[in-house]
Amino acid sequence: MSMSSQTAGATPRLHLSKDVVQVIYRLLAAGLLCVVLAVVTDSFLSTNNILNVLRQASLLFFLASGLTLVILSGGLDLSVGANIGLSACLAATVIKATGSPVLGTLAGLGSGTLVGVCNGLMVAKLRIPSFIATYGMLWVLHGLTYYYMGGETIHGFPPGFRQIGSGYFLGIPIPVYLMLGFLAAGTFFAQRTVWGQQIYAIGANPVAARLCGIPVDRRLILVYAFSGAMAGVASLVFLARLNSAEGDIGEALTLPAVAAVLIGGASLFGGVGTVFGTFVGALILTLVLNGMNLLAVNASWQPLVTGVIVVLAVWLDMIGRRRT
């Protein structure tokens, strides 16, 4: 057949997948932002500020990396911010009660994961649309946390525990190492495991994925559990950094986390995106917010800018889809 001869005769050439090209564009954007900020502000290039940006980006990335998997599977998890609040407060209580940071860490990770599993069950088994299920969960968690804390603050944790949030190693904040670790682990999971590939397939077409023999329900529960566990991780780093737990600790982070994932090139319609892209997305968003800060823009502008970015990112993604 003439058609097949074309295939056989095609010369192999350097191939950059669309994902890679997208990430390169975003890296360039991040670089450009750095250059602009370095020019227009005096303090941007100071070591302190750079480390500050990296640390802030890392907190955002923990949350956003778990959320990336959810969005890859074609869903959304709006409960991550509230999950941080509950997990941080539980972890704080356990550390205070037992004096053991290890038990506290387990409590934070455990509660985060449990919340995620509940989300997964609602989405996969009860077939509640993910944005509604996790939105309901947001308020359940929010209420539980406030009720549990009763307006109190828990503070003062062992120095060893505080290291994971505010410590340094070789002059670089510990959370940055953690971020790189989770970046590697998340990328490996998504790109190099069968489960990761199946999650992409589910997001791209859940019906076809089911008819390919992928156990869709189990993978979805796993994805939401991961997202919850990453909220647990974020809660611990937050706790260690702030050295105090309050009910509203992660509340303002949901929208930025969604924004970071969408800036990173993941599609809200599922099946497209990478954990590395989200990493770059978290960097870009942090740079924007940092720049506004350095330029003495009132912090009140932050949710507004983040909201506009979310809508813009989704819109650009939809334009891109319509073209292909």
Binding site: V194, A201, A204, N205, R321
Partner: peptide
């Protein structure tokens, strides 16, 4: 999955068989 590549689509049903140790 129309947005994914030929290679991805060809692998998707055979993932457990092609990669028995779960590593892709």
């Amino acid at each position: 999955a129309l947005i994914r590549t030929v290679s991805d689509n060809l692998a998707v049903a055979g993932l457990p068989k092609l990669f028995p140790n779960h590593l892709f």
